[in-house]
Design a protein around this nucleic acid. Structure first.
Lengths: 350, 350
DNA sequence: TGAGAAAATGAAAGCGCTTACAGTTTTTTT
DNA sequence: AAAAAAACTGTAAGCGCTTTCATTTTCTCA
């Protein structure tokens, strides 16, 4: 069995000073002479002493860990975001702790306990998918923000009192629709997520708005269903096409995310339809597999990693001066690939 | 500002008992009378008291958190594994803490600190991709195992002193090759990961072995390269085909994982080759996107979620009786989809 | 060179909890 | 009903560190 880990007492004894001095020496406190500091550090190193961050937090009341809260980590978007946040935190000497709250209430309760116990130096909340009501969410975040600096990467919530980084999701689908319109499409469908009417269904809203702006038909030709998975995409597409007389089929569709688009692509293939010739498809999120679908998927990049980095930087800044809440919108970028074809003289690659 | 969180002292005072009694009441200790226990619990609930797990760990010397160590979370395989482990842990009243160690040494160092500080009740180590040498890995794990129960989900390492759950990766590629052979393929290529020779390159080994067993040609026709990404797959395939005279092209290929297979599928399409008619493709890992590639990818399922659940259960068991190290191999399952075609009278779906 | 200021150090009180150990009630036994 | 046993509760010592405050040492300048 490995022997008990060295404590500050071991170092103090070995160096012939008090534990207070050791503590100061190791925290680069200005209250200790250069000479002793150096000696203590040497002794600590020699002993292989590693300060215990838990005890440190208990004692000082604050730690260097940032809580990162996402709905679930199996979703590539959140994984990418978390990973970027963790990397940026590490680059700045901080640690990250992951919480996946979509799982169930137990997970949420657990986070509640940790929230007060772990003395987080800040929290990064990542939302986006509609979980809980907007009000409940805003309330929870505001509560969190009373205890520590908080940055939220999610659509701005009314009454939200913390830094909020977001993408105009309305604009992301709007861009997609506009692009399709430019290419000559007039009947465009929407595939995805819960109700289009809710505030959080921004992607659906943007879709509708742009349809109206461009004076395109916006009957029930678009199919809305719950879920953000390939399965959902597949089912939705099937329903959409079987419910519509062939003559009125859309010539293009915008999916709420790349996962749904992936399912749709598959189903289109099953039904013998060609993409983009028979149906143009645009996704959203620019996930790792999007360049490799067949054909490669036109999509919208929300730059999650950049959001993550900004968030960590803000939290870092909040350590010195309290953060004044603000809202920053990052422009989404349309990534044109082959799934939506091109306007004139389009020819499939190879 | 939210007021200070309630402590055990607040509860003690409100209930008119000592903090020791509160502690016992809240830990369902048999040393407290039913009556006081109930009263204390009521008071605690009324006050909205939440025990501080950190302090609890400091005091008792152990916590209910399991450290889960993976190389990186953006890889869908690890995300799925972690997610399953977390869910199972939660179902059993435990918490999970994620460490991604492939990032850099800072991350490793951080884990080292936490390892002694957080009083983990156990650790779940997930390896698989070759990082560090086998010896270093075995050493680290054995060290870990001296401090807490450890379950490793990775190929069995020589000298490893902990529970080890794994898949016979040799067999996974072997199954793939055998299947392709059954379908009539004779020239089969391998696309993937670092050197085939290393122990950890089990997938490559299995591939080679089966080739020999079946008396199939195993020249340098298989291309080995570093990396497990779609990009790598794309590049590898390109190299493979351009380096080989068309007459000797393989008719089938086994990719080291689904990501690589995804890249290969794309490149095949680019080159105008049909799958599976011109080239059968088999992947490995059965990831979420595999049923949605075009054509759907034949692959091998390693049942990561089941591994994760077993691991948590073992750790749970280790809490009562120390775990005797053992090794458990879980059979990988070949998932046949359309990317490898069928033997006779094959016709593409729809 | 000595008084006062500045710098360095140490003692000790937390941080919020668990857990021997000791002390106090009950309960059981005879 | 008194003594012994059992059940409960409280006291206090940690767990490993930070930090305030008091104390000691060193430095500064007359």
């Amino acid at each position: 069995m490995a022997q008990r880990a060295k404590t500050i007492y071991d170092v103090a004894q070995a160096a012939g000073v008090s534990i207070a001095t050791v503590s100061r020496a190791l925290c680069a406190s200005p209250q200790v002479s250069k000479k002793t500091a150096a000696r203590v550090q040497a002794v600590a190193a020699a002993l292989g002493y590693r300060p215990n961050p838990i005890a440190r937090g208990l004692g000082s009341g604050h730690s260097d860990v940032i809580a990162v809260i996402v709905p679930e980590i199996t979703h590539p978007y959140y994984a990418e975001l978390y990973s970027a946040a963790d990397a940026e935190a590490r680059r700045n000497g901080l640690t990250t702790m992951l919480y996946c709250l979509a799982a169930d209430e137990v997970a949420v309760a657990r986070f509640g306990e940790h929230m007060t116990a772990y003395r987080f130096m800040g929290a990064l909340f990542v939302g986006g998918v509609a979980e809980a009501t907007d009000e409940a969410l805003a309330g929870m975040l505001t509560g969190l923000a009373e205890r520590m600096p908080v940055v939220a990467i999610c659509p701005p919530l009314p009454g939200l009192q913390c830094i909020c980084l977001y993408n105009d999701l309305t604009s992301s689908t709007r861009q997609a629709v506009r692009h399709l319109h430019t290419l000559g499409h007039r009947r465009i469908a929407f595939l995805g997520g819960t109700s289009v009417v809710r505030t959080s269904g921004a992607r659906g809203m943007g879709f509708l708005e742009e349809l109206r702006t461009l004076d395109l038909p916006c009957d029930d030709i678009y199919q809305h269903e719950a879920g953000y998975t390939p399965e959902a995409g597949q089912v939705a597409l099937m329903k959409l096409l079987s419910a519509t007389p062939r003559a009125q089929w859309p010539t293009a569709m915008v999916a709420i995310n790349d996962l749904v688009a992936l399912g749709a692509l598959r189903q289109l293939r099953r039904m013998g339809l060609r993409v983009p010739e028979d149906m143009a498809v645009v996704g959203c999120d620019n996930q790792f597999f999007s360049p490799y679908t067949d054909p490669p998927l036109t999509t919208v990049d929300l730059h999650p990693a950049e959001h993550a980095r900004s968030a960590i930087q803000e939290l870092l800044g909040a350590r010195v001066t309290p953060v004044a809440p603000f809202t920053l919108m990052r422009e989404a970028t349309l990534i044109v690939r082959e799934s939506c074809g091109v306007q004139l003289g389009y020819r499939r690659f190879a």
